[in-house]
């Protein structure tokens, strides 16, 4: 077992790291970025993840491309593009989230590696560009919200009907959550309902507080990356 790491050992840190430390997080090094792996209660986190858990996945890789011919360029690079406001998993597990005709957001899977993200980064050049990289890793934070109670809890913060039968897996809602703009992507883990919330990185502490408040009546709790990974089996 490797030595325990502290988020300040690494250059890249989620703005939430003090809160996570306060909740008892143990940290994993995800590509030089500290991510809460667990909160020391594997059984409790596993059960919460199935009914209501929130996990700071800001450390996982993200990328974005935006421009008048994003579709043409990313398709030429082998990305299997969905329609706007839909997400589509790629063969390497990367989730391609189409935010509009000309904008793509890429999220790595919970394994934290994305060949697609790496490939596009290598391929893109300013010369003759028809779309441009968007620094999604730093613009945004990412919170996974998992479990059956998620839609009811989210209804306290957001005006979109996110219930499972009204909001299909891999649908995207770009909307206002607790009065902040956010991107909500339904991204079930195994059979468990899950949302990935991609939000302003400077607001993650605020959003975490709102989520913590809203999930109290459903007995939700913070869970680590390990618990989210375990959902997929």
């Amino acid at each position: 077992m490797p030595d325990a790491i502290s988020p300040t050992d690494l250059v890249r840190r989620s703005n939430l790291y003090r809160v996570s430390t306060g909740l008892g997080a143990s940290w994993a090094d995800v590509n030089g970025f500290a991510c809460p792996a667990d909160y020391g209660d594997a059984a409790g986190e596993a059960s919460a993840a199935a009914h209501l858990g929130i996990a700071d996945l800001t450390a996982l890789p993200r990328a974005g491309y935006k421009g008048w011919d994003m579709a043409g360029w990313t398709a030429s690079q082998g990305v299997d593009l969905p329609d706007p406001n839909q997400a589509r998993p790629q063969s390497d597990g990367t989730l391609a989230c189409r935010l509009s005709g000309g904008e793509l957001l890429l999220l790595s899977d919970d394994g934290a590696a994305s060949a697609t993200i790496d490939k596009l980064a290598d391929a893109w050049t300013m010369e003759d560009a028809v779309c441009y990289p968007v620094p999604r890793s730093d613009t945004n934070a990412r919170i996974a919200i998992t479990g059956a109670s998620v839609p009811h809890m989210m209804a306290k913060m957001c005006g979109i009907d996110l219930r499972a039968h009204r909001f299909d897996n891999h649908r995207i809602a770009q909307t206002s959550v607790a009065r902040m703009n956010a991107i909500l992507i339904r991204n079930d883990r195994g059979d468990t309902y899950a949302l990935d919330m991609v939000l302003d990185s400077a607001s993650i502490v605020y959003m975490w507080e709102c989520l913590t408040d809203a999930m109290a009546e459903f007995d939700g709790r913070a869970v680590g990356l390990d618990a989210v990974r375990a959902l997929a089996g």
Partner: peptide, 8 residues
């Protein structure tokens, strides 16, 4: 782009 949404 986004379908029916609250005017807010």
């Amino acid at each position: 782009l986004n379908g029916e949404r609250n005017i807010s």
